[in-house]
Design a protein around this nucleic acid. Sequence first.
DNA 1: AATTGTGAACCTCTTCACAGCT
DNA 2: AGCTGTGAAGAGGTTCACAATT
Lengths: 208, 208
Amino acid sequence: MKKISDSTISRLSKYYRTLGRLIAQKVKTVSSDEIAEIDGVTSAQVRKDLSFFGTFGKRGLGYSTADLQHNIGKILGLFKKWNVALVGVGNIGHALVDYQEFKKQGFEIKLLLDNDENKIGTKVGDLEIKSFSDAPTHLEDEKIQIAIVAVPANVAQKVVNSLTDAGVRAILNFAPLSLKVPDGVMIKNENMSIELEALSYFLTNRRK
Amino acid sequence: MKKISDSTISRLSKYYRTLGRLIAQKVKTVSSDEIAEIDGVTSAQVRKDLSFFGTFGKRGLGYSTADLQHNIGKILGLFKKWNVALVGVGNIGHALVDYQEFKKQGFEIKLLLDNDENKIGTKVGDLEIKSFSDAPTHLEDEKIQIAIVAVPANVAQKVVNSLTDAGVRAILNFAPLSLKVPDGVMIKNENMSIELEALSYFLTNRRK
DNA sequence: AATTGTGAACCTCTTCACAGCT
DNA sequence: AGCTGTGAAGAGGTTCACAATT
C-alpha cells in the first residue's frame, strides 16, 4: 500500500463528518467544490485526496453523499469496533470517558487504568478503575487495540513502554512531550498547549 | 514579518518544553542534535527553525538551555499573560478549567460562558458561569484575548461569529467541524476524533 | 574538534488545467 | 454543460553539506 500523507488522512476525517451532516440534512449529492467550501480547502485537494483510494464520483454529477461517506468510513476503518483503554483517570481522563463523540464513531473505552491506590476499585460510569501494574492481563482480557495516555509528563514514557511491551500498537498521547515508540506502533499527540501557544504567537506577531 | 510555517511554530513549542525539562535537570548547554533526538526531528530542522528568528547558539558549543528557552518564550509571546474565556462548560470545559498546564504557561481562564440557564450563576472553582447572551460585555470587562470554544457542533459557528463580532482574535475550537472566521482572526482546532481516526486508519491498513 | 547557521538540493504536498465522462 | 480524475507544474517544507566560528 502506497504511503498516504497524514494530512490526507485527517482531511478524510473532516470530509467524513461533513458528509454526515449533509446526510442528516437530506442532501443526496455533493460536488468536490461544495465539500471544499465547507471544510476550507480547495476542490482539487478533495478530489486528489479521494483519488489515492479509488474513484467515487460521477463526472458531471458529483458524489453521492451516502456512498462517499460509506467509502471514506471503510478507508478509515470506522465500521470496526475499536476497544480503547484509558490510562490515567484524572481531569482529562474523566472528560474523555464521558465524551460521547468517541463511542458514536466506534471507539469504545472498555478499560480504565491508573496507579493511584485511592482510585483503583472505584467506578467511573460503568467501568471500574483497574491497577496499571496488572495492565498486560487487562489489556489482553479486553482485547484493547488503542490506548489513550492521559498521565503526567514525567511518567508518560514509562507508561507507553509498558503498553507497547504488552502489544498495544496505537496510542493517543495527551502528555505534553514527545514520546518514543518502537517501529510498527503509531502514536498521535493531542497537545492543547501547542495550539494555544500558536495563538499566542499569532497575537504577538501579527501586524508588521 | 516573514511568514513562518505552522509546523515551525509547533516545533518551537516542543523545544520550549524540552528545554524546560533540561533546565529542571540542571543541564546548562545543549546541541541541536540533542534537542532533535529528544523531540524526534533532525538537527538541521532544529537549527533551521531557530534561524528564522535569529542566531541563538555558539558554534562548536551549542545553546545555553536557559537563554534559548527564554528566546523561544519571547518569540511565542509566552511571557505575556493571556486572558482566556471558556465558552461551553460541559465535560471538556470542566476538565480544561482544572487543567493546570495552561495557567503555568500564562494562559489564565478568567471567564466562563454558557447558555444553559441551569449552569448560569453556578461556580466552577473560583469562577461563576456567566450568560453567553452577555458575552460582549463580559469579554470586554475581562479583557479576553483568546476564547476556547467547547460547545456542541450545531451551535459552534454561531458562537464563533458572536465572539469575532465582539472582537476576539484568537480561538481554540474543540467542536468537531471546520469553522469560518474573518481575516485577521486565527482559529486552531483540537479534534480528538481526527487523531483517533488516524489510528484507526493505521491499524486497518498496516501490513500491505 | 565540535557544532552552528545557511544556501542549495531535494522531496513532498498542493494547485493548475484539461481530457474524459455523464 | 458540468464536474470528476489526474499528470504536470508550482509552492513549500525538509535535509544536505559545508563554510564559519568558538
